[in-house]
Each structure stands twice: as C-alpha cells, then as structure tokens.
Design a binder for these strands. Structure first.
Lengths: 193, 193
DNA sequence: AAACACACTTGATCCAGATCAAGTGACATT
DNA sequence: AATGTCACTTGATCTGGATCAAGTGTGTTT
C-alpha cells in the first residue's frame, strides 16, 4: 500500500526504516470509486493526499456553473486544496475520482508533527513544492503567452499519458478552451499531416 | 543589509545567532541600477535572489518579441528563474530592475550546503514555496476563469501597492492584456462610480 | 434490435479583447 | 519657448475562440 509513496520519498531524501515507520503511522488509507468526491468546494480540506493508484481531478466551478480544471493527479502525485488545507479556510476547489483510486492521506496536524519529528520531510516537501512551482510557472507563462493550439501541442509533448487517460472535454477545460475548440484544433493538426 | 532577510526568515523559523551567521556567510550583496539586467534569457541563472530594497520584474519574450510579465519582486521577495537555477539549464526568462535595487544572492551550491548545514532552511523554503504555490494556483485559476476586468479588480484588491508602484503597461502584460485594454477597463470602472 | 447516453464533431454566428493608428498631456532636454 | 519622449488614452477595425445548435458514432441498457 505504501510502495509508490516510499518510491517517491526515497528519490528525494534518504530515510531509515524507523523513520519510514513513523511516516507510515501518520497516513490514513482511503479508497474512492470513480465519480466519488474527495473534496467539495465549501468544505474545509482536511487532508493532503497522495495517489497510490488511480486518477483524480481537481477543478473549480465559476458563477455560471462552468467547471475549470485545475490539475490532474495520478500515481505518485499529491493533491488537495493547498490553501484550504494549510489555512483551515473553506475550499474553493472540488476534487473527485476519474478512475477508482487508492489514497494515502495525512491531516494538517499530522503533517506538522511529521515534519517536526522527521525534518527530512521538510526537505522532501521543499523539493516537491519547488518542482511544482517550476511546473506551475511554466503553465502560467504558457496560458498567457501561447495560442490555443500551442497550449495543446505543449501539453501533448510534456504529458502524453495524460492526454490518453483523460476525456477530451476535461483536457479542453484544463487548457482553458471550449471542448469544440479543442476538437477543431485536433482536426487541423491531423489535416496538416 | 540583512535586516529584511532575517525579518522574513524569523517569521517562519527560529534561528540561533550562530545559525544566522552561517546563513549570512552564503550570501553575496549586489546592487542594481534601474533598467539593469539581473538575468537575461539564454544565460544560466546562477543565483537565487532576495530583494532587500527596490523592485524587479521577471518576464519572458515570445517569438514575436512581445514581453510577458511573469512576476514582480520587491522588498521581502525572492526571485530567479527557478528552473534554470535548480537544473543549470539555460534561463527562458529575463529579470531586470524597475527601481534601483539591493539584493542578497546565493548560488545553487551555496543553497545546497546551507540547507544541509542548517536544515531549518529546508523548512523555511518548504513554507515559502508552499505559499508561492498557493498564490500561483490562484493566479492560474484566475487567468483561466475570469474576464479581463475581474482579473484587474482582483489584482487591485489583493495587491494595491503593486498597482501604484508599477507602470500600467507592465500591469497589463502581467494580466495578459493589451495596454489599451487595461486603459479602457480603468475608464469603465471610473465611469461606473 | 430499439432506445438511450456519452464523447466527440461540424457548422453558423457572435463577441471580448487584440491590433493598428492617432491623439493628449506632463515632464525633461536644448 | 520649442522639441522630444514617455505613459497613457481614444477610436476604428479585426479575429481567435466562445457559444449555440445539430449532427454522428459507439457502447450500454432494456
């Protein structure tokens, strides 16, 4: 159950067996069925979640009821509404399962304790957040700078698996496009070949 | 020279005088004149920089030569091309000074050593990156979800100082808008009052 | 096999914001 | 005082992508 988690932790920091056991003790295992919610906007996000198996989507819904995809999380990814998790304020995003999913979850209190007992976890999360920040930075630049087609081809290049695993309307939403637009873009790309 | 830095560090972690001295020893002081470059795209970003005084902008330039503002950094902010800094690859962004600026800079090797000698710095940067990530996440959602006017009013609310301190064309670029569009938006808002 | 749902496509029209092109007004330089 | 320059405004036009409204095709339920 903890295989993927430690695979990821050990890539970034070294941990004794004892430390590994301490870390394990802070996590709760949870399984989600396809379409089941992990978090609904308005609730407080109680857990930071690591995906051992499956696929989740996090998205927010605007005033007009339109869903805007935020990120996808599959094996080896962490997900939560970070803002809500760390501040205890109400979440603005929703998270639900696109596929049946197995999660490892930790509470904020657990997280705080864990980092104090095993300071290497501060290091792990420093590196993790650092990398996410780099990725987010690039995506932000891309969302402002590039055309719809460039955004799509960038995504396909940087994340080929995602495009295969996730329905096209969600990919469109992730890129900030109408589903029709993505459909036309794909057609144009195919025609040009 | 290190006042603002330690003000910020001590908000997030406690540090002995000894630790503070060690940290100081890793930093280089640098002054920049208005309009002077800190980093040009194509060079490797050698330093992670903390702004003690002044104001910097980081931006990238697209194929058509158009500048896209990425972020602003003033007193108490860190800046760099994180990707380039941590990987040693060529930078894609430019950083230059909007006002005369005083910086504290650390190299990647320095950063690595510092976190190993003073693990609390891992904690500091974990929290720093965590907060930046939350902010970036919000900005990304905003850039996809909101209209031009909503983006602007959001910025004014969340960052009133920035709007006063930075020329309007740079604000427009930061929001992904043409300068003319921002001008018209401001006019409309004023008219409605 | 008929009916339905789901994921995607195609076409016609519309609109927010970009682009191009002249202003305007407040300082700075000569 | 005239000239230049910088930051912004205003107007006219254009366009990428959204929106609305029918399809189509495949798999699933009855």
């Amino acid at each position: 159950m903890f295989e993927i988690l430690f695979l990821h932790l050990l890539k970034k920091v070294s941990l004794s067996h004892e430390e590994q056991d301490i870390i394990k003790s802070f996590f709760i295992v949870k399984k989600l069925r396809k379409r089941q919610y992990l978090l609904q906007a308005g609730d407080v996000c109680k857990y930071l979640c690591f995906v051992e198996k499956g696929l989740l989507r996090s998205y927010n819904v605007d005033d007009k009821g339109i869903e805007h995809m935020n990120m996808f999380a599959w094996e080896g990814w962490w997900t939560s509404d970070m803002y809500s998790f760390f501040t205890g304020e109400k979440a603005v995003i929703n998270i639900d399962a696109i596929e049946d999913t197995e999660l490892l979850m930790i509470t904020m209190e657990g997280f705080e304790k864990m980092t104090l007992i095993v300071p290497k976890m501060d290091r792990y999360f420093r590196i993790l957040f650092q990398n996410s920040l780099i990725t987010k930075e690039r995506r932000l630049i891309s969302s402002i700078t590039h055309t719809a087609e460039e955004k799509y081809t960038n995504l396909v290049e940087s994340n080929p698996t995602l495009v295969q695993r996730v329905p096209q309307n969600l990919i469109a939403s992730y890129l900030g496009l109408a589903p029709e637009t993505l459909s036309r873009i794909k057609k144009n790309i195919a025609l040009r070949k």
